[in-house]
Every structure is written in C-alpha cells, then in structure tokens.
Design a protein around this nucleic acid. Structure first.
Ligand code: ZN
Ligand code: ZN
Ligand code: ZN
Ligand code: ZN
Lengths: 169, 169
DNA sequence: TTCCGTATTGTTACTTTATAACATTTAATC
DNA sequence: GATTAAATGTTATAAAGTAACAATACGGAA
C-alpha cells in the first residue's frame, strides 16, 4: 500500500483539512509578501476551494450573489486576476475556467506552471508538477529558435474513479 | 549551414509554395477519405493559410463578408468544426483562435496533437511535433491514475525574428 | 487625528466568442 | 425525378471578458 501522494487529489483525502490548509498557506503568503487578501478575494478563493473542480467566472459570480454580495462581472474578474497573478489560482485555458492551486508549496513558490489533468467525465481537475517536462518542452521550442516564456499543458481524460466506473459498468 | 526544416515556419521559406502544397494535400486527403471539401470550407482554409498566424473566427467571418460571401457566425464555426475535426486546422486554446495545420504529413496522418509555439510579439504560430513528449506527458498523468485522452501543449514566447529585434534594438 | 494619495470595489455599458434552433438549399443515392 | 441526408442560411441568444468612470476603503504622512 503506497503512501498517499499529498498532491494527488484523485486519492482519498480529508478535504476539509485540504481546504483549511490551503487558506492558511495563502493567507500566510499574502502576509509575507504584503499582499492584501481582502474579504472579496478570500471569498472567491474559498468558493474555488470547495471542490477540486474548475469554475467559470460567472459561476463564481452566481455564488457571490446568492450570498448577498454585490455582483457584477468585473468584481469577480478582478479578484481572479489578483489570485492568478500571485499563483493562488490557475486558469484552465481549455475550459475558460479557474481552479484553486493545489500545489503543496503554494505560497512559498513563485507562480508556477503545472500540468493539469482534467477529467472529461466528472470535471475534477488535478495539478501535477511539470518538473523536467517543462524544460524538455522549452528545449523542443529552442530547437526551432524560439524562446519560451510561458507554457500551457493540459491533459484531458479520465480520472481513476471515472475510469473505474466505466470498467465496472 | 543547416538544411531548412520543412516544418519550421520561422525559417525562410517559399510561402506561396507552402500554401499551395497544403491545399493540395488537404484536397487529396479529403478525396481519399470521401470528405467534402466544399467551396466554403476550402475558402476558410485558404484564408487561414495566407499567414502562419492564428485567426479568430470573427476575423475569418469578416474576410468572407468582404468577398461578398454570406456571413453569420455559425457559417464560419461549422466550417472550422469540419476542418478541426479532420485535423486540417488546429484550435489554439490560449488564443481562442485557429490556424491551418503545418504538419508535413497533414492529410495522411490522423488528427495529431502538436506542440504550438506562439510568438507574443508578432503572433506567428509554429507547430512542432509533440513526439516523445506526448508519451512522457501521458506517463506523468498515468502516475496519478489518470488516463490521458487528449493533450493541449502551447508555449508562448519569442520567435527568432522578434527575439533578434529585441537584442539588436 | 486629519488629510492625502492609492488601491480596491461598485456600476454601467459594451465587446468578443460561441451556440441553439429552425428554414432552406444542395448533393448523393436510388 | 423522387427521396434523403448533408451542408448552408438565418435569427436569436448564451457565455466569457473588458473599458471607463464613480465611490469607497485603506495606509501612511503631517
Ligand atoms: Zn482536497
Ligand atoms: Zn498550483
Ligand atoms: Zn509558409
Ligand atoms: Zn515573432
């Protein structure tokens, strides 16, 4: 029996703890960097942290409105811009949607570019370190005389649970 | 002096020939597969082949209208859907835009998933084979129990020409 | 504390990208 | 030529994102 990978959200984990730890790390990181995690920004992050799924900006907006908070699109987009800029939230290009960062070093690391695993069936999204792949991609680009500045790597497929459901009927 | 890479559109090449060859290959491929490359579909592909840049659907629509062709968004989106489905055109997720396929085996290959190099300065887009990187990405996904079905790999940066301009003023 | 400048949020209006639904035309098959 | 499916035309609308400016809250200097 392998140790659970703390970064693999497809494995069983205490998600309450997972969320709580994420908020704490982001909060600490903001304090260290003198960034203002305002109530609005914090609330948007909390909404994203409720699940390991990507949410559209308008979906988040809807949630804020239900809670009575004022809500026009720019409100949400600005909060998301802050969170994405500082690496606390990632944007998924393929989905035009956003997800909270799941990296164990979120906050200490500078903004990172992971590999995203997007389940076509349940819409869960996991984040894996790009690691050496990032450098290999840059090298491939460099072979054509291209200087890489940023990368988008998103894989669509089936998460373990959904794959299991298909196999077992 | 290295031989020019036939797939590297950042290098000097006879683009008239490049375009012509692409149309011929796509046309042949459609004939072999009993696909209908209608005048509209062919025209959309030609427009995309005029440059190695990505174009938005509405930009293409504008071009069609200038030529007197009827034009509403679904017209263009349907032509693009056909071209993308059969691998003659690629969609760039990061740009919400489309570009003609530049792969030398376009038409013979089944739909492929390349690595895209997007110049932040001049907006040119090159297509490189993902090659072994695709398998490495799948393996990284597999390590988390995920079954990869499709991949998005886009690199943003500076093409050789734009990098040169920056360096030389 | 009060004042001031800046960062954040509120608000209105709008742009860009994409699709649903149904009518009409075109083309392949019999 | 009639039948049927594929492709295109057309109208309307959804979904995603942003520009511009007003109002407010906040952090530091006086
Ligand atoms: Zn969790
Ligand atoms: Zn992350
Ligand atoms: Zn060319
Ligand atoms: Zn360039």
């Amino acid at each position: 029996m392998a140790m659970p990978d703390p970064e693999n959200i497809f494995e069983h984990h205490d998600h309450r703890q997972c969320r709580h730890e994420a908020m704490r790390q982001v909060s600490d990181s903001c304090a260290r960097q003198h960034l203002r995690l305002t109530p609005l920004r914090a609330r948007v992050l909390e909404i994203l942290l409720e699940s390991h799924r990507a949410m559209g900006a308008y979906e988040i907006l809807e949630r804020l409105r239900e809670e009575g908070q004022a809500g026009q699109p720019p409100t949400v987009y600005r909060a998301l811009e802050f969170l994405v800029t500082h690496g606390f939230v990632h944007r998924l290009e393929r989905l035009n949607a956003f997800m909270a960062c799941c990296h164990v070093n979120r906050g200490t690391d500078k903004r990172h570019e992971p590999l995203f695993l997007i389940c076509n069936s349940c819409r869960k999204v996991a984040e894996a370190p790009l690691g050496v792949l990032g450098r290999k991609i840059d090298r491939q680009a460099g072979a054509m005389g291209f200087v890489a500045q940023s990368r988008v790597v998103e894989v669509l497929g089936l998460c373990p649970a959904c794959r299991g459901e298909l196999e077992n009927g």
